[in-house]
Design a protein around this nucleic acid. Structure first.
Length: 594
RNA sequence: GGCCUGGUAGUUCAGUUGGUUAGAACGCUAGCCUGUCACGCUAGAGGUCGAGAGUUCGAGUCUCUUCCAGGUCGCCA
């Protein structure tokens, strides 16, 4: 059993001491990191979240039983009393911020012993994630994880300060909500009191924050958990945190301007980086046409070019037929790649775009001795010349073409563009490419549902000039929706909301809800809208993604203390798990064993 | 649900064409060591090769099934 603290009080965190403290009698507490046992002289690196302090046990100075010092092992929790001393010149450790000093220990308490940990507690661990997550409490002791969570806290604090200073009120909204049919799958919570009824955990505080606007709270924010029961990714967890905001009496520009200030402050506070404002604004259609993505990484070129008009009448039927059927043929010029990419690698890229639904990918390699291509034999010289001109084809380039319906062309070439940039190392590290993507489509056609769905959500306002298209021209109706993009990642998104019952009803009608269904599902909002609703809109950031990017890590799991693994379970606590039959009976639930 | 990658000592990995007793580094244990900081030296322990089945005289290695983890497509208003 470990010793008790008694009247010992910690003076400060391990790495908070400096040369100024030389000569002070101090008490330190922390975990035994590495120890170097020279017999009558034992060095221990004492670690806590501030860093490391070397403490020295010298048999001649130590007051207690020196065998106790010899028994110290990794991750024992120690309390030491001693004096801060200056290290002699030849024993300074330049690698440690505290390397100029050390603690000459006179008294020791072993507050807690520890099993040998299943992996070493060290920076830049290469231990497989499965094990790290099972022993998350040990993984979280590692300096890089502590750094990540501290950085995350800084972001949240910075945002909270900014929003408070700008008059936003932090107001909580319910975790137990009504399930909504649109959007992601809900996590459901059974009601004990209402047999057969379920709450849903919020996918976002959307409706409640809109109602707060109706109630006159004008500016609202909340840093809160949201839940979506969908498959996981490196940047997607079933529960994640949003910095959620909403403002009244604003249009899209006002919201974006407010948030440019926020993002500028966060970058300054957290990274000490100055962001130049205003940020670029790229209409959705332009983003898709140039980059094949609604979250473009614009740190490099490789832009898409539309060659549909050139190949519309081509003998190459693959191309001419997609154009005839309303699709397009677009291309990327991989500058200077003719000699870099072997045929085998080109074939691999052709396979790569098939992941995104492309049935194939044509290419033209421009060499000194002419064109090498599987398709030029089907094309006229005029067509080839026009393509060369459109794509600025020079000797040494390879042109990649995808012809299909637009969504496939954008997805596959957008992905190819990123793949090429990675392969060619075109992306400069430590650059921060921030921009807005605006004028999103209001609707998106769902092949699965055979109907138009809301691209953002059903409460998003159409652009003023597109209000008439809500029922008549869904494909071309644009929304007052905007995403903020950082280095090719969507870090936030928002919109101006519909603030009239009539337009909201029209919108729900456009989405295929009967009036009855609409009122059944969203009646409380439709009703509330009638009682004096200010124009309002907002934006929500994905705090996890933002933290991931600023921390420079590849997965949001590295900025979340207790994340879930790919099958949505927690390896440490073993959630989810079966429950007692008694609990199920109380909830009126029978489990189908199949 | 589909595709791809991985699973060998506590950890990270190597393991050739299927062939003797499955190796290394770090960690761990014991001993020695008063200026280490990747301490050093000496000795030692430690393996259901993810699991199951199959092929074979013989399987870590080949085949099938399955479990786990990761990436990704679908999905994620």
């Amino acid at each position: 059993m470990g010793e008790f603290l008694g009247d010992w009080k910690r003076t400060a965190l391990c790495a908070e001491f400096t040369k100024e403290d030389i000569g002070r009698e101090v008490t330190l507490m922390g975990w035994a990191d590495t120890r170097r046992d020279l017999g009558g002289l034992v060095f221990v690196d004492l670690r806590d979240r501030s860093g490391i302090m070397q403490v020295v046990f010298n048999e001649s100075d130590f007051k207690g039983d020196f065998d106790q010092v010899g028994s110290i092992r990794s991750e024992y929790v120690l309390a030491v009393k001693g004096k801060i001393v200056e290290r002699s010149e030849d024993t300074i450790n330049p690698k440690l911020p505290t390397g100029l000093i050390e603690v000459k220990v006179t008294d020791l308490k072993i507050l807690s012993k520890a099993e040998t940990p299943p992996f070493e507690i060290e920076d830049c661990s290469k231990v497989r994630e499965e094990l790290r997550l099972k022993y998350r409490y040990l993984d979280l002791r590692r300096p890089d994880m502590q750094k990540n969570l501290i950085l995350r806290n800084k972001i949240a604090n910075s945002a909270r300060t900014y929003l408070s200073e700008n008059g936003f009120l932090d107001i909580e909204t319910p975790m137990l909500q009504k399930s909504t049919p649109e959007g992601a799958r809900d996590y459901l919570v059974p009601s004990r009191i209402h047999p057969g009824c379920f709450y849903a955990l919020p996918q976002s505080p959307q409706l409640f924050k809109q109602i707060l606007m109706i109630s006159g709270y004008d500016r609202y924010f909340q840093i809160t958990k949201c839940f979506r029961d969908e498959d996981l990714r490196a940047d997607r967890q079933p529960e994640f945190t949003q910095i959620d905001t909403e403002m009244s009496f604003v249009d899209a520009d006002d919201v974006m301007t407010m948030h440019e200030g926020l993002i500028q402050k966060v970058f300054k506070d957290v990274m000490n980086i100055d962001i130049q404002l205003p940020l670029r604004r790229l209409p959705y259609q332009e983003a898709m046409d140039r980059f094949g993505s609604d979250k473009p990484d614009t740190r490099f070129g490789l832009e898409l070019k539309n060659v549909s008009d050139i190949v519309a009448g081509s003998e190459f039927k693959v191309f001419s037929s997609v154009v005839k059927n309303g699709g397009s043929v677009r291309a990327i010029n991989a500058k200077g790649c003719a000699n870099i990419l072997a045929r085998r690698e080109i074939d691999a890229l052709v396979d790569f775009v098939k992941i995104y639904g492309a049935k194939g990918m044509a290419w033209i390699s421009i060499r000194e001795d002419g064109l090498n291509s599987p398709i030029t034999k089907f094309m006229t010289q005029e067509e080839i010349d026009a393509i060369m001109q459109r794509l600025d084809g020079q000797v040494g380039d390879i042109l990649f073409f995808v012809g299909d319906k637009n969504s496939v062309v954008y997805d596959s070439l957008g992905a190819l563009r990123l793949k090429l940039a990675e392969k060619l190392e075109l992306i400069q590290e430590n650059t921060w490419d921030l921009l807005w993507v605006t004028e999103f489509p209001l609707f998106e056609y769902s092949e699965e549902e055979k109907r138009f769905m809301a691209k953002h959500h059903p409460f998003t306002s159409p652009m003023d000039e597109d209000v008439d298209k809500v029922l008549t021209d869904k494909e071309h109706a644009r929304a007052k929706a905007y995403d903020i993009v950082l280095n090719g990642n969507e870090i936030g998104g928002g919109s101006i909301r519909i603030h009239s019952t009539e337009l909201q009803e029209k919108m729900l009608e456009a989405l295929g809800f009967s009036k009855e269904e609409a009122w059944n599902r969203f009646g409380f909002l439709l009703e509330a809208l009638k009682y004096g609703t200010p124009p309002h809109g907002g934006l929500a950031y994905g705090l996890d993604r933002l933290a991931m990017l600023l921390a420079g890590v590849d997965s949001i799991r590295d900025v979340i203390a207790f994340p879930k693994v790919q099958n949505a379970s927690c390896l440490m606590s073993k959630a989810p798990d079966v429950v007692d039959n008694k609990q199920l009976r109380e909830l009126h639930i029978k489990v189908d064993e199949d």
